[in-house]
């Protein structure tokens, strides 16, 4: 295998790895721009992964699976948001609660529906690689771009949609205004809390699809399969300075690190524990570099 094939291979799997990150970061942008720290991204993703997989295996439809993941995660986000905004609970604690609640409820339901609390693998349709046949044979980047499965393309559309919603729609403007100056929103006669709740539910919606994009292509639900991606998405938002384009770029860099570490396992004779830590090391370095650049 030539180095070129290796590079395109790493790039192609980086694009696949970017899918859940991009969606979770798009969701996190809503809460971030509404002026809230949403630490529940991780738990919301996990809920999306489980319910998405369960619905897909029950109905045999990927679309219904995605929808179920999005709705289930939105519902949990709504609970989390209501507890924080209406009942005035501390957002950090309710976020933590959501992160603990998601793996527990999925474990309970997994035991009762599938009879196991560990990996559930059931036959579900595989996401189509819709451009593979027509364009997948293009050289270099063509192959990289067009060999992805449909969920990746969906994530790009949804991420662009999130940016459009935030910056070009009335709802998005109100959400951003709430984050920038809530008292001005109140003075204009609106309820800042309802926009915050909307932002939380939207973040749940996107995280749900992010989770589904983990479990559906794999054809299995693995407990704790989000494995820190919700947190990395949060870091991507900060690195991206809360701007959609830069956040997407940060997601790509993290995805590249993940894909490289997958490739590098067993390649260089370095213990795989170190290799697997690459994405997290990149996160840490990027975060400290990012903050020092910003404070300049």
């Amino acid at each position: 295998m030539s180095w070129l094939d290796t590079a395109t291979g790493i790039l192609a799997s980086a694009l696949a790895a970017m899918t859940p990150l991009l969606l979770a970061a798009a969701g996190g942008l809503f809460t971030e721009l509404a002026g809230m720290l949403n630490i529940a991204l991780e738990g919301l993703m996990l809920a999306g992964a489980f319910f998405g997989f369960a619905a897909a295996s029950a109905t045999g439809s990927l679309s219904l699976g995605i929808l179920a993941g999005a709705l289930a995660s939105s519902a949990i986000a709504w609970l989390y948001g209501s507890a924080t905004l209406r009942l005035k609970a501390n957002a950090f604690i309710t976020g933590l609660a959501a992160n603990i609640f998601a793996p527990s409820i999925t474990a309970v339901l997994s035991a009762s529906w599938f009879g196991t609390k560990s990996v559930v693998a059931l036959p579900i349709p595989e996401p189509a690689r819709i451009f593979q046949k027509s364009f997948g044979k293009l050289p270099l980047l063509g192959g990289v771009l067009f060999s992805q499965h449909s969920l990746s393309y969906l994530s790009w559309i949804l991420a662009a949609g999130a940016a459009l919603l935030l910056y070009r729609s009335v709802l998005g403007t109100r959400i951003r205004a709430t984050g920038a100056r809530a008292e001005a929103v109140a003075a204009a006669g609106f309820k800042p809390d309802s926009y915050k709740l909307a932002a939380i539910v939207l973040s749940g919606f996107f995280c749900g699809i992010a989770g589904a994009s983990l479990s559906l292509p794999l054809g299995a639900y693995v407990p704790n399969m989000s494995s820190g991606r919700g947190w990395i998405a949060l870091v991507a938002i900060y690195l991206g300075n809360r701007r959609p384009g830069r956040t997407a770029l940060a997601c790509f860099i993290f995805a590249l690190a993940e894909s490289f570490s997958n490739y590098a396992q067993g390649q260089f004779g370095i213990p795989s524990e170190f290799i697997l830590a690459i994405p997290f090391a990149v996160t840490l370095v990027a975060l400290s570099l990012g903050t020092s650049v910003k404070s300049e």
Binding site: L164, R168, S169, V170, L171, T173, R176, A177, A180, R181, E183, A184, V185, A187, A188, G189, F190
Partner: peptide
């Protein structure tokens, strides 16, 4: 207000019309 309530991140026009923005289809501004 004495402490002005202009919203950073929005343009002057968006601030002036805040709350009664004209919109096109799909709730877009």
């Amino acid at each position: 207000h004495q402490h002005f309530m202009t919203i950073p991140g929005l343009s002057a026009a968006e601030n002036i019309l805040f709350g009664s923005e004209p919109r096109t289809a799909f709730g877009l501004l």
